[in-house]
Design a protein around this nucleic acid. Sequence first.
DNA 1: AAATTACATTCTTATATGGGAATATGTCAA
DNA 2: TTGACATATTCCCATATAAGAATGTAATTT
Lengths: 118, 118
Amino acid sequence: MARAATTSDAFNAVAEPRRRQILSYLAAHERPVAEIVTALKLDQPSVSKHLGVLRSVGLVRVRCDGRQRFYRTNAAAIRPLHEWASEFEQLWKHQLSRVKERAEEKANEVKSKSNPHS
Amino acid sequence: MARAATTSDAFNAVAEPRRRQILSYLAAHERPVAEIVTALKLDQPSVSKHLGVLRSVGLVRVRCDGRQRFYRTNAAAIRPLHEWASEFEQLWKHQLSRVKERAEEKANEVKSKSNPHS
DNA sequence: AAATTACATTCTTATATGGGAATATGTCAA
DNA sequence: TTGACATATTCCCATATAAGAATGTAATTT
């Protein structure tokens, strides 16, 4: 089996750096495609294709007005990612404090070695 | 250009569901490969390959003991993901409350329509 | 109607999978 | 040394890109 489609879920869609850029850019305001193109310096077809992926997993929404299409990020679709990562929040805090402790221990060892008679 | 390698960063590595499973499984304790195989019902080569990807982006660490290799998740490597998603936290809270408001407005409208003389 | 604007879609191509099967490597036991 | 055991690596293949170029489509203007 090949890699899962980028359109299969938010995790796969967000793996692409440009799509993350687009989501961040669209977080504040809705924007027409052309503005994304100039702001992020990407080709228009590329932007449209990325938006298509984002739309297919619900990460962005569109509003049509004449010939313009205003995209905005649907932040709620990012929650699953945030929640999955939160599973590990306590863990990395513990791990970091342990690293800190060991660093301090080591510092003390070095101290006593370099100054054995102190 | 093809899709970025799964080994290019945590975002790409974590896009694969089995790798997320593995990370969750290894969050509590370190485990030898064989236990991952039986617990998640995957083939051994598959697990080794996924672990290779996870290791290459620093999401897991290994400790060798005889012929066993104990893997544990390095939670700190998940932080970038969590922090990126956090960018949108305020936004989805606002969006959700707006949806709620509009739902309530709509409910009131329906109420007054079905009971116009109240 | 013809030209223009704003996007979307299609095609091609180099590249990277993930799973399965087979095999290699490294370590301990008899 | 010869097995047995725990993992890793290699090969093959169907599939899925993402970028670039070209083209299609719908709405607006002249």
